[in-house]
C-alpha cells in the first residue's frame, strides 16, 4: 500500500527533484562563487556575495519597495474585492452580468494588463490624464509613471485592477455557502447588520479569505512582469523590486553569483511567509 503510494508520487517527486530541488541547491552553490553568466573562471568567494548584498543600501531599498508594493496591492485588492463580493451577494438587476464581467480582468494576461495601463498612463496622450483633466480633477497632464511619488502607486493600481476580482470570486462563493436559515434566524433574534455579518457571515468567509490573502501576498512578493513592462524599475529606482534586481545583476550585469545570493535572501524572506501560511492553513484545517 505504502509502496504503491510512493510509486504514484514518483513523477511528481521527479519533477520536484530535477526542476526545483536541483536548481535550488545549485543556486546555493553559485551564490558562494563569483561565477559569471557566460564564460570566465569560477572561484569560491565564501560569504562575500551575501556580505555585499546585505551591506548595500540598494538591496534594502529594493526590499522596502517590494514590501510596499505587496502591502498596498494586497490591502487594496482585499478592500475592493470584499466590497465587490458583498455587493454581488445582494440581489439587483444585472447582477449576473456584473459577476460575469469580473472574470475579464483576471483572465487578461499580465503583460497585456501592464501594457494597457502603460498606454492609459501615457503622459501626453493617455486616457488617465485626459479623464482627470476633462473632469476637472487635475489642472494639467502629469507624468504618472515618471514621478517617484506616483509611479509605484500607479503600478499598484494596475495590479489591483487585475487581481481584485479573484478575491471577489472566492469571497462570493463563500458568502453564498452561508445557509439562508442562519440569516433569517439572526434577523429574528434582532441582530443588526454588523453583528449579523460578524456572527453569521464572517466564520464562513475567514477560511477562504485567508487562503486568498496569503496566495496574493506571495504572488505579489515575486512581482516582475508588470514592473518590467510598465517602468523597468524607474524612475530613480522607485519601482525596482527584488526580482528586478536579480534579473539586473545576473542577466544584465552577468554577475550570476551576486544574483543568486540576492535570490536566496529573497527565498529566506518568502519562506517566512510560507511558514506563516502553512501555520494558518493548519489552523483552518486544510491539512487535517
Amino acid at each position: 500500500m505504502m509502496l504503491r503510494s510512493w510509486l504514484l508520487l514518483a513523477p511528481l517527486l521527479a519533477v520536484m527533484t530535477f526542476i526545483i530541488g536541483w536548481p535550488l541547491a545549485k543556486t546555493v552553490g553559485v551564490s558562494f562563487t563569483d561565477a559569471k553568466l557566460i564564460g570566465g573562471d569560477v572561484n569560491w568567494v565564501g560569504a562575500d556575495n551575501f556580505a555585499r548584498v546585505l551591506g548595500s543600501g540598494m538591496f534594502w531599498s529594493v526590499v522596502w519597495t517590494t514590501i510596499r508594493f505587496v502591502l498596498i496591492s494586497v490591502t487594496a485588492e482585499f478592500a475592493i474585492g470584499l466590497g465587490a463580493a458583498l455587493l454581488l451577494d445582494q440581489k439587483f438587476i444585472g447582477r449576473n452580468l456584473l459577476r460575469a464581467l469580473l472574470i475579464l480582468p483576471w483572465a487578461l494576461p499580465t503583460v497585456v494588463n501592464a501594457t494597457m495601463w502603460r498606454l492609459i498612463y501615457n503622459p501626453d496622450f493617455g486616457a488617465f490624464n485626459a479623464l482627470l483633466t476633462q473632469t476637472g480633477m487635475i489642472d494639467s497632464y502629469r507624468s504618472w509613471l515618471g514621478e517617484p511619488g506616483s509611479a509605484l502607486l500607479a503600478v499598484c493600481l494596475a495590479d489591483v485592477w487585475k487581481n481584485f476580482s479573484l478575491v471577489t470570486l472566492i469571497a462570493l462563493a463563500a458568502l453564498q455557502s452561508v445557509p439562508r436559515e442562519l440569516h433569517s434566524a439572526a434577523v429574528i433574534d434582532g441582530a443588526g447588520p454588523w453583528s449579523r455579518f460578524r456572527a453569521v457571515v464572517l466564520p464562513y468567509l475567514i477560511g477562504p479569505l485567508t487562503v486568498a490573502i496569503v496566495l496574493r501576498t506571495i504572488e505579489a512578493f515575486k512581482v516582475f512582469d508588470i514592473i518590467w513592462v510598465m517602468t523597468r524599475g524607474g524612475p530613480a529606482n522607485s519601482t525596482k523590486t527584488v526580482s528586478m534586481l536579480v534579473y539586473e545583476q545576473a542577466f544584465s550585469f552577468q554577475k550570476a553569483g551576486i544574483g543568486a545570493s540576492v535570490a536566496l535572501v529573497m527565498v529566506l524572506v518568502s519562506s517566512l511567509l510560507i511558514a506563516g501560511y502553512v501555520g494558518l492553513l493548519r489552523r483552518q484545517g486544510e491539512f487535517r
Partner: peptide, 10 residues
Amino acid sequence: MLPPVALVVP
C-alpha cells in the same frame, strides 16, 4: 511559492 528567480540561474 518559491520565487522563480531562485531557480533561474542554474
